[in-house]
Design a protein around this nucleic acid. Sequence first.
DNA 1: ACATTGACGCCCA
DNA 2: GTGGGCGCCAATG
Length: 111
Amino acid sequence: MASHAHSAIVATAHDIRLFTMLASVPEGNVVTYGQLADLVGFPRRARWVGQMLKQLPEGSKLPWHRVINAQGKISLPADGGGSEQADRLRAEGILVTPDGKVSLNQYRWRP
DNA sequence: ACATTGACGCCCA
DNA sequence: GTGGGCGCCAATG
């Protein structure tokens, strides 16, 4: 079976560490892609974090919306999940400007 | 094997 | 504060 499956969801040990780290980000806080990469021991792999988040299933309970870029902005286009992300952040009490900007000084998570 | 593509980041004008 | 340019690295074509 698994030997000739055309596609399979594989999670490496690193992936698990990333998801675990993301899951620990508290409500009302945000983290950057690069920050998450650093926390799991992969500096300069911010893009990898983005790739992982992109493949999360629709109903995922992970707080993917708490991840923004180093400029403090939402990276997703408004019509591609960005609006939902802003809504979710606001629902947690986070102030998000109309153009999707968040104050990292104020909301960044420090583990 | 080579080229392109990103939910990125840093530097500089 | 804001773009533009370039570096980075894994995934995709």
